[in-house]
Design a protein around this nucleic acid. Structure first.
Length: 643
RNA sequence: GCCAGUGUAGCUCAGUUGGCCAGAGCAGCUGAUUUGUAAUCAGCGGGUCGGGGGUUCGAAUCCCUCCACUGGCUCCA
């Protein structure tokens, strides 16, 4: 007998060789119907795999991530079977489960798939699913595995096999399809009831752009048709929140082919929004001792040679602008830090000046590959809420913590609760990608790790994501469609001060090298606002929204009265306009609702007689009639709640 | 940059296998209406069918090429 420990800590005894499915059945029929896979001492297994020794287990259903992952991975195999049956000779790369579904990378030779082919594959999958084919696990020797894929002519699987050790190789077979796979899988294909192939994309084999591009097919499956329908509806809803769509509808920003791709143009309403955000941050930063500066949009080549940006990005940036007679070369500013280093270094500095916090809403220009551009999230010209803190080694931690506090405050104030913090460190395998000494890097990386620990910030650590001059702490947030974007960033840098030979005179009357902290709580105004739009669906916080009210006179007889109301509100710094069009009140309300203007003040005979306004809240409806003073006080209450 | 797809009026979309002057709704303009909580009525104007080239008696429709956009991949100081 073996001891099986359940998640609640209770221990049950089973005969050695018991399977996950048998355990589930012994607990309840319902569980046995719904269970998809099992964790045995932390490793996810098939339900049919015998458990030989005592272990702690967790049974996974559709309701946990491991269960979904098993389900979707099995769905990828089902899709592969369908592809092999419809397109014999298809070669397979990898086919993992992802956050929402799965994909499989395939090489179809001369054949090209188009979206029109997808329904046919979906049909085949459903057909095969009904066969209730069992996912059969089989251990296989490396030699036999190599022979199998040699005969099949699948060089991708053969390459994957090269990285595997003999004795640890397993095949899974369902129906007519056999795949090299670690598993685990759901019991059989009949669990898969609803299938949708979402999209086709090119994907480089092993993520290497020098290698062949395979066809990636994204799909998702569900145990119930209803769940698929709901998922697709959710996607439709998310698309309505897309900042590119709302940005156009609310007239926040635009793009123009003539101006150039990836170069956002801010319209008056968007500019208002952006400047309010900047003013907010400016005030917060002034409280913290920041000093604002303004630097030019271009810089001489030498500046970027000194900073190292030229060596790293010179070939992949906008190419230099040259003076017509002298041929001097200037680059569009891709970063503000070199300019700020020059500000630091323009005269001798004393330790008494440190920490020196230099801030700038600096507009920078970077060449991004055309296929990468995306609304406001990925552009070629954008404004960073940038600042560089020059401080002593001893001050690094304190400064870092202050920046961390500011950044999390900003993120939380905007209501972005679902952010993740990522520590981005060097890629140990590629030291040539970075400048500076190991000692500098170690100090910088340790500073970030220590500071995040001190405030108990939950972080993930990713190697290879550091900037070339230093490690970063990045704040990641998802957009409406679940894509993750980096917003705020904090970077500790020992290297640029060295390259710019920055110094300060210490209390010992000796020169010392300062440390630099790069930081941008929003990241860029463009990307931050793109996320803000998607998270609020265009219903911005009251303090930020371009128009806070619209006065809707029922007939133009009440326009003069409306003017008076508007003036009273303006005196209280409440902004808005009068809709004086000769339209019906229903029409005015509809248009104002669609513009996401928070308050509608409706004025007709009744209100004017009593000296009141009838208040309607966007998205909520009629709040009834009240005096203008009552409205002002209600407005101010809400202003505080949302700010 | 790469793979796949899309591009018709300011917006959303129709335009059969290539065939008379390219259509609709909304928006816009003009006029009428003076309205009570999500679209008042009528009239009018508006399109190099993304650009260029080609095939054809004839191209929005077929082919080539460039541009932009969408979904991914790679990249992201």
């Amino acid at each position: 007998m073996i001891d099986i420990t359940l998640p609640d800590g209770s221990v049950r005894q089973y005969a050695s060789g018991v399977t996950g499915m048998e355990i589930a059945q012994s607990i309840s029929e319902g569980l046995a119907r719904n269970v998809l896979s099992i964790s045995v001492d932390g490793n996810v297994w098939d339900l049919s795999r015998p458990i030989e020794e005592s272990a702690a287990i967790r049974l996974h259903t559709w309701n946990d991530p491991e269960g979904k992952a098993t389900y979707w991975h099995s769905s990828a195999h089902l899709m592969a079977e369908a592809l092999e049956s419809l397109y014999p000779g298809t070669k397979f790369g990898i086919g993992p489960a992802i956050d929402n579904g799965y994909y499989y990378d395939v090489d179809m030779g001369e054949e090209t798939l188009t979206p029109a082919d997808l329904p046919k594959i979906e049909q085949k999958m459903l057909e095969l699913a009904k066969e209730k084919n069992v996912y059969q696990r089989q251990s296989i020797s490396k030699k036999d595995a190599v022979q199998y894929f040699n005969e099949k002519g699948d060089e991708y699987k053969l390459e994957l096999l090269e990285g595997l050790e003999d004795g640890q190789i397993t095949f899974y077979t369902q129906g007519q399809f056999t795949d090299l796979c670690r598993g685990p899988h759901i019991p059989d294909t009949s669990y898969i009831k609803a299938v949708k192939l979402m999209s086709l994309a090119g994907a480089y084999w092993r993520g290497d752009e020098k290698r062949k591009q395979l066809t990636r097919i994204y799909g998702i499956t569900f145990p119930k048709q209803k769940e698929l329908t709901e998922y697709l509806e959710l996607l439709e809803e998310a698309k309505k929140r897309d900042h590119r769509k709302l940005g156009a509808e609310l007239e926040l920003f635009m793009f123009s082919e003539k101006v150039g791709q990836g170069l956002p143009i801010w319209l008056p309403k968007g500019t208002q929004l952006r400047e309010r955000l900047q003013n907010y941050l400016r005030e917060e930063q002034e409280k913290m001792g920041y000093q604002m500066v303004v630097t030019p949009h271009i810089g001489a080549k030498q500046l970027y040679m000194t900073s190292g940006h030229y060596a790293k990005y010179g070939a992949d940036s906008f190419q230099p602008i040259k003076t017509p007679k002298e041929g001097e070369e200037f680059f569009l500013k891709p970063m503000n830090c070199p300019h700020h280093c020059e500000i630091y270094g323009h005269r001798p500095r004393s330790y008494k000046e440190l920490p020196l916090r230099i801030g700038e809403f600096g507009t920078v220009y970077r060449y991004e590959q055309s296929g990468e551009l995306h609304g406001l999230s990925r552009v070629r010209g954008f404004t960073q809420d940038d600042a560089h803190i020059f401080c002593t080694v001893d001050q690094v931690k304190g400064e870092f913590l202050q920046v961390l506090e500011l950044t999390t405050k900003v993120i939380k104030m905007m209501g972005f609760e679902n952010f993740t913090a990522q520590i981005s460190l060097r890629d140990p395998a590629n030291p040539e990608k970075y400048i500076g000494s190991d000692a500098n890097w170690n100090a910088a990386e340790q500073a970030i790790i220590d500071a995040t620990k001190e405030v108990d910030l939950v972080t993930t650590t990713v190697y290879g994501e550091a900037a070339f001059y230093g490690p970063k702490l990045d704040f990641m947030i998802k957009d409406a469609l679940g894509r993750s974007w980096q917003l705020g960033t904090i970077q500790v840098d020992y290297n640029l001060p060295e390259r710019f030979e920055l110094e300060y005179i210490g209390s010992d009357n000796q020169p010392h090298r300062p440390v630099m902290i790069h930081r941008a709580p929003f990241g860029s105004m463009e990307r931050f606002i793109s996320i803000l739009i998607e998270h609020t669906a265009g219903k911005f916080p009251l303090w930020l929204t371009p128009d806070q009210f619209a006065i809707l006179p029922i007939s133009d007889k009440w326009i003069p009265y409306s003017e008076g109301i508007k003036a009273k509100l303006a005196a209280e710094d409440i902004r808005g306009f009068i809709d004086d069009r000769a339209e019906s009140i229903g029409r005015k309300i509809r248009d104002t609702e669609l513009k996401r203007i928070p308050f509608m003040l409706i004025i007709g005979d009744k209100e004017a007689e009593k000296g009141e306004v009838s208040v309607r809240r966007q998205g909520q409806g009629d709040l009834g009639s009240m005096s203008i003073d009552q409205f002002i006080s209600m407005f101010k209450d809400q202003l505080e709640v949302t700010s």
